[in-house]
């Protein structure tokens, strides 16, 4: 096995760092979102939920903390949904020909793009965590240094496997699109249901049954579960809902994301193996 995928990764990271505006925007935008939306909504949500009686033994969590985990998940979703877009530009500008005509196996292209997408997501998620803690998000409460390290590793594991699935999906779509505009349209279409039919910003438990069933099919739900488990804890109370995550729930969430990534890889591989650039 060669390391050609690392070449693809290397080039994508050069571009990421070289475009100062892109770099700046992608780092600041999620933090801004958390700052404005989070702080604005926390006031009202916490007022509503303070009316509901707190069951004995439940740990109440402010909305800002609850949604911070969701913003981390959504940021990962949006970044990775567009993570394969570079392939579309490479295709349109003819750059893909050089790569497809090289002896490098084509799955290396997918892996290189995935690796750089995951790197970008990790950077964003770490920034969000640090920024969140600065503005009052209460993650890792009462945890020791070792426990915090394990929790962060757990979060990154979830972000990584989730990102992998969406980067493969994004790559597959990019390779079939003909213009950036259509890519944009498809991605927006795709992101809306993923965004809203999830438990990222509000509890899915109050959805009507068919929407609840839909959240079970949404990978974002499983990512949020993983992040909340590691960042907030297995048992907490937010937005008048009692959240309990057992280790089995978390394992199931991870396996669901792994399955999603596997299926998306198969789809992307099929697409790139059939790609003809001439």
């Amino acid at each position: 096995m060669g390391f050609e995928f690392f070449t693809i990764y290397w080039r994508d990271m050069i571009r990421f760092v070289r475009f100062r505006a892109l770099l700046f925007a992608s780092l600041v935008q999620p933090a801004l979102w958390m700052a404005f939306f989070g702080i604005a909504m926390t006031g009202s949500f916490d007022r509503f939920t303070s009316l509901a009686p707190l069951p004995a033994g439940a740990v109440p969590v402010p909305y800002l903390t609850f949604m911070a985990a969701g913003v981390m998940a959504l940021t990962t979703l949006f970044t990775t949904l567009f993570g394969g877009m570079g392939l579309l530009f490479d295709k349109l500008w003819g750059l893909m020909r050089e790569i497809l005509a090289s002896p490098a196996p084509r799955w290396h292209i997918l892996f290189g793009i995935a690796l750089s997408g995951i790197t970008k997501s990790y950077i964003q998620v770490m920034i969000l965590m640090v920024f969140g803690l600065l503005i009052g998000v209460r993650f890792f409460v009462g945890a020791s240094l070792v426990q915090v390290a394990i929790a962060i590793a757990g979060i990154l594991l979830f972000v990584g496997i989730f990102a992998l699935g969406f980067l493969f999906l994004s790559s597959a779509i990019s390779l079939t699109m003909e213009s950036p505009e259509s890519m944009q349209a498809v991605m927006t279409l795709l992101s809306l249901p993923l965004f809203f039919v999830s438990n990222a910003l509000y509890p899915a438990e109050s959805f009507p049954p068919f929407l609840q069933a839909a959240t079970a099919l949404n990978p974002l739900t499983y990512l949020v579960t993983g992040i909340r488990y590691f960042a907030i804890g297995p048992d907490f109370w937010a937005l008048s809902h009692h959240y309990v995550y057992t280790p089995a729930d978390v394992c199931f969430a991870f396996l669901a994301l792994a399955l999603f990534a596997g299926v998306m890889f198969a789809l992307a591989l099929r697409t790139i193996n059939r790609a003809v650039v001439s």
Binding site: E4, T7, R11, E98, P103
Partner: peptide
């Protein structure tokens, strides 16, 4: 450099 790496 990219090309050379791509061809290992």
């Amino acid at each position: 450099e990219f090309h050379g790496r791509l061809y290992s």
